[in-house]
Design a protein around this nucleic acid. Structure first.
Lengths: 342, 342
DNA sequence: TTGAAAGCGCTAACAC
DNA sequence: GTGTTAGCGCTTTCAA
């Protein structure tokens, strides 16, 4: 029973009350200069008196963009993206935008389809943590959506969009460097999702740091499940030269490794030191507290949002500007899982 | 062909191609029965050929509801609500809805304001974890929004809306009961946010279980920060009869308590046993693994979504039905923070 | 069963 | 400066 919400005052009501034409009201609303101050006052008074608010549907039908921004992330239940989403939503609201959120489930087809749906709804802009691996078919569709767009956390290689990324390489290298300074030489690197940009970068950072120290890299990047971590751990611990330190590629692997190590009674950092990429709220509560490479999801989100707002404004004024690329530093939060400094 | 800014085919294009009037196309789209099968076929063919899709703005302008549902939670960065949001978004998409998400920051005024904004956008329904404490001024505004609405996790007392809640009392009682069965008699209950429905219920459950066992309740419900937990712990441990077990009211407090206990070198469960309300992904990784009352956020979200979809359909058909109230059970996940059974 | 016409509330384009 | 007109794409109403 869709009772028509005809109770809301329209531009017409305002015009009648202010004794002006529709257009004058429209001009006042849209802040156009060519209205005499006295007239503007009258209109504003009428607007206030009636509690008039613009009808979004009508504006959109005329081709205006909705005061909505879109947000697509792989997984909303992942703490990292949840913080991003929270921050973005808050900032969007503060700037008068509502937020459409999509969890793509790491499905590139779904991601692009949902982006197109958002475009159809005339959203003002899109923030995107893309799961696209093979650019070819998808990028064109995204480009065609013709939307102010900012990629964050992961780039959209080849697309002319703003991007806000984290210094994954440097962060990983710093973590490995830290272990090396503790005297470790057999440092393993474990994780999963190696086809994902951020993970690839971290692995590169690890490799770089190892090679620079003339150490032999040892990467196991297919350990998505706890059981796989357990199996890997069993294997390397049984080897002649087990690693004395492990660098984990993200928070989930850090947690799984802790569990697997605890099950085997392996002492951290006594027998094996651990440093993880991704800090998280429970890292200090783990036993022992985990040394981790902290990203700043809230900052990542905030920078992305600001970039998007800028681009939205520029686009609205017909300006164009080369895509910006922002790299955010990480910081190594030293706790006790890596042992005392030598 | 009139030049259109969007380039998207309109109902008009379809009508021309199918050689029927606009209305016939509209009827086909909206599945109205009074169209001859042959005509319908022609129209459908034209729709397919042009790749026609309805323009939402135009439908809305005519008073139809948008295929959008709204979601308001206190805090998106809270793991519990993040899982809810993730699930709801996914289900909404599967049913052809997009999802507008708002994190209210536990601000009742903001919550209602955003709900009203959503209503103005003609969303089809609203899912709400309400932060309203004092119903009077806000409920009326919500009611007036005239929206299919489902409250979850927390009820909207006095409002005629569906609600999906968790059995907080029974869950808390079961946790305390478990500790009692382990022989504990001095069981403290700590947490924060006691003005929130769920926390109040859990405290009630704790009190009930204690009183039934003729034990003296010991509640400290103002410990929001780690420092406060530390201070409280210092105080009770120094007392003549310190608690031998602690029941925490939510996951954040559980984590803080673990940290505070570790700092003091208090053994879990040796010196103090712990059971927490709220299970979370890292609970098994803590040292020792935390025994916790598991809620099922994904299930909570799914049931809420289904209830909302039903109500949306009913409302669309002018039907009415008494608000439903669903109570979801919790389960006690026994790990090792509560010690071996006596 | 189908069609024509009248707007929904707004803004762009052009008059005055 | 301000007003008038003409739609945006769709659904409702009423006529055929």
């Amino acid at each position: 029973m869709s009772k028509r919400r005809s109770g809301d005052p329209t531009i017409k009501d305002v015009a009648r009350l202010a004794r002006v034409a529709l257009m004058t009201v429209s001009r006042v609303i849209n802040n156009q200069p060519s209205v005499r101050p006295a007239t503007r006052k009258r209109v504003e008074a009428a607007i206030a008196q009636l509690g008039y608010q613009q009808n979004e549907a009508a504006r959109q039908l005329k081709g205006q963009r909705a005061r909505i921004i879109g947000l697509i992330v792989p997984d909303l239940s992942d703490g990292f993206f949840a913080i991003c989403a929270h921050t973005i939503q808050r900032l969007a609201r503060q700037h008068g935008f509502m937020t459409l959120v999509v969890a793509s489930g790491r499905d590139a087809e779904l991601e692009v389809e949902q982006a197109e749906l958002m475009a159809k709804r005339m959203i003002s802009g899109l923030l995107l943590v893309s799961s696209i691996q093979d650019p070819q078919p998808f990028h064109e569709r995204l480009q065609r959506a013709d939307l102010p767009m900012v990629a964050f956390d992961r780039p959209l290689a080849g697309l002319k969009t703003d991007a806000v990324l984290v210094e994954n390489r440097a962060g990983a290298a710093a973590a490995v460097q830290h272990l090396i300074e503790h005297g470790h030489t057999r440092i393993a690197c474990i994780g999963y999702d190696e086809e994902v940009y951020t993970i690839r970068e971290r692995i590169d950072g690890y490799r770089g740091a190892m090679q620079q120290a003339r150490l032999k890299p040892m990467v196991a990047a297919g350990l998505g499940q706890l059981d796989e971590v357990r199996a890997w751990l069993g294997r390397v611990l049984a080897s002649k030269t087990p690693p004395t330190a492990i660098f984990t590629l993200n928070h989930r692997t850090s947690a799984q490794l802790y569990q697997a190590l605890a099950e085997r009674g392996v002492a951290i950092p006594g027998q094996v030191a651990v440093v993880g990429f991704d800090d998280f709220d429970l890292a200090p509560v783990l036993n022992p507290p985990l040394t981790a490479v902290a990203q700043a999801p809230a900052e990542l989100a905030a920078r992305s949002m600001h970039l998007l707002l800028e681009r939205i404004n520029r686009t609205a004024q017909g300006e164009f500007e080369e895509p910006a690329k922002i790299l955010l530093p990480t910081s190594l939060v030293v706790r006790s899982s890596c042992g005392k400094h030598v």
